[in-house]
């Protein structure tokens, strides 16, 4: 019985090291954001909440937060409206080219954002859409719509089609089936997909970075700019902003975890290997 115990011990150590690292990464940002001066000591010389006020004014956080929320809501609503009908057809119908279409929706998720982000931003600039809110929303829709489709297709597949057939036999039209039968059944899935899209959009750096103009930056892009321009701004003030970003993400996360399983936040992989 020594081997299992040794294994448990080893895994416990690995997990502990990981969590200590994680705590150190998050903790040092939080402590620094409250510190006064922190050079060669374990903790800062004193603590002050002033950096938050300064970060709020310096980085014009209110408009940035407004942009972040607007972008997220628009992206979530549009991708659900466009994605759910498509995933309904993909889940219920067999038609020529179904696999090819599925692959088409899979590609934007498999590609690194920078790869399609650069040509996409070039196109959006050509049509004068980039540099504004609309460009940021359009760019973020590219991975979000496929994500909704891939999340919702397995969800719709597990709803019994007999319910729809029964409704159709009773004379319901497609629109009625959608609004009266499917929508109530789909609400939990749609809610989960919406939250996941919001979380991903808040964290989506590359696409927003490539398409945002000065007044359409989301929080994560503003954070990146203030970090890469280090030296101009006090480190603590940047950290204060990072803490605000973290807090926002954690609130979203707590909300998300009420509705979805942690593994879904990562990806909903459907093993389509019949």
């Amino acid at each position: 019985m020594t081997r299992p115990r040794l294994g448990t011990w080893f895994i416990g150590t690995a997990i502990t090291i990981f969590f200590i690292g994680l705590a150190g990464v998050v903790g040092s940002v939080v402590v620094n954001s409250f510190g006064t001066r922190w050079f060669d000591t374990w903790l800062p010389e004193g603590f002050t909440p002033d950096w938050y006020g300064q970060a709020w004014d310096e980085f014009t956080l209110l408009p940035v937060l407004g942009v972040t929320l607007t972008v997220c809501l628009l992206v979530a609503v549009i991708s659900v409206l466009v994605g759910v009908p498509a995933s309904y057809v993909l889940a219920r119908r067999a038609f020529p080219g179904r696999r090819a279409l599925y692959l088409l929706f899979l590609l934007p998720i498999l590609m690194p954002p920078i790869t399609y982000g650069i040509p996409l931003a070039t196109v959006l600039y050509k049509y004068g859409l980039a540099g504004h809110l609309s460009g940021v929303v359009l760019a973020n829709l590219v991975p979000s719509i496929p994500f909704v489709i891939l999340t919702m297709t397995p969800f719709i597949e597990q709803i019994d089609p007999a319910v729809e057939r029964a409704a159709r036999m009773c004379g319901a039209r497609t629109v009625q089936i959608f609004t009266k039968i499917l929508a109530p059944l789909l609400i939990p899935g749609i809610l989960a997909a919406t939250i996941l899209v919001v979380v991903r959009t808040v964290g989506m750096f590359e696409l927003t970075f490539l398409t945002a103009g000065p007044d359409s930056q989301t929080l994560v892009v503003a954070l990146f700019y203030s970090m890469s321009a280090a030296g101009i701004r006090a480190q603590q003030s940047v950290d204060a902003m990072a803490v605000i970003y973290t807090a926002m993400m954690l609130v979203l996360l707590v909300v998300a975890l009420r509705f979805v399983n942690p593994t879904q936040l990562v990806a909903r992989v459907k093993d389509d290997s019949e």
Binding site: L22, G24, V25, V26, S28, V29, V199, G203, F205, V220, L223, F224, M227, V238, D239, A242, Y245, T246, M249, L250, L252, L253, L265, V266
Partner: peptide, 13 residues
Amino acid sequence: VPITLGTVLTAEG
């Protein structure tokens, strides 16, 4: 948590 924090915050930390 680290997944939602994203690369920018991880870098800062």
